[in-house]
Amino acid sequence: MNAYRYVLRRLAGLPFLLLGVVTVAFLLSQLSPAEPLASILSERQLSNPEAVAAAKARWGLDRSPVEQYLYYVKNVFEGDLGISFRTKQPVIEDLAARLPATMELVLAALFLGVGSGIVLGVVAARFRDTVVDQLVRLIALFGSSLPVFWSGLAALSIFSVQLGLLPGPGRMNPRAAALDPITGFNTIDAILRGNMASFSDAVTHLILPAAVLGWATTGVISRLVRASMLDVLGQDYILMAKAKGSSGLRILFHHALRNALLPAITVIGYSFAYLLTGAVLTETIFSWPGVGSYAVESARALDYPAIMGVTMLGGAVFVLTNLATDLAYVLVDPRIKLQ
């Protein structure tokens, strides 16, 4: 089956999933005891029935929940996520403005976490049951068990405050000239514009939050890769590769690692979704102007349209990640065919 048609068919499912997400999110917002008007109007206005009625009409709160729901669904499928109570901007624009920051952070975290996880996993398998293996186990354990808010603050205090090696929170030095966005990824934009000062500014700001966020992934991936490397290294085709006269490194990387990474692909996909969730805390701690901090600010302000928008963005990313995972398998494993 051709890949293009397969992708289209899989994407055709996206609207249905989003409908599900909207429905659940909408029900939850209805169940929530919080009064959305409280976040729109000041306290004085709240006691003014005219102002309340006007606001209700303005935001559609005077209609029945069913009407509200249908109206919202219709708008969503027209690409309109409503206006944020808090920023008074279209939610879709808010999200578009903040998504690149989150993607840059999460992709960097994924890259660091998966990269280091694979290397550590291979090393642990190669030197199994030695001190090296134990050390990797320890790194993995801390990575998976330390909460991001703790490791984030600790990292800031050590590397930024005490050692002064890296800048503090934020995405760029606020006093530096702003970068004209192209992709919205500061690191890439700096390269595209040939601005080395901005590039190093962007990278040094990115390292800490990405490392802190990616650490949990390091833990999961290194354990998985270790186990699956050990399994693969016991297979006949590895012995066969040895019998051919392959070098140790060739066996490890050409023959074993590829096979060992197959089970990791699914987990890398999940990790991406997991990192997006983790980004909420990380962005808050590192004052990172992304979707995660937007979600927190919106939740605090009971900004329903914004919260719904973030929820749907999450759902869409989840579906796309699943699709990417399945496609990755087809690329890597000749036994798997599109269907």
Binding site: Y237, G245, R258
Partner: peptide
């Protein structure tokens, strides 16, 4: 692999699937 070669019992597992 050059002067001495080996043929294994199970051809289903002796070849690298990827």
């Amino acid at each position: 692999g050059s002067r001495i070669a080996m043929i294994f019992q199970d051809p289903l597992t002796a070849l690298n699937p990827l």
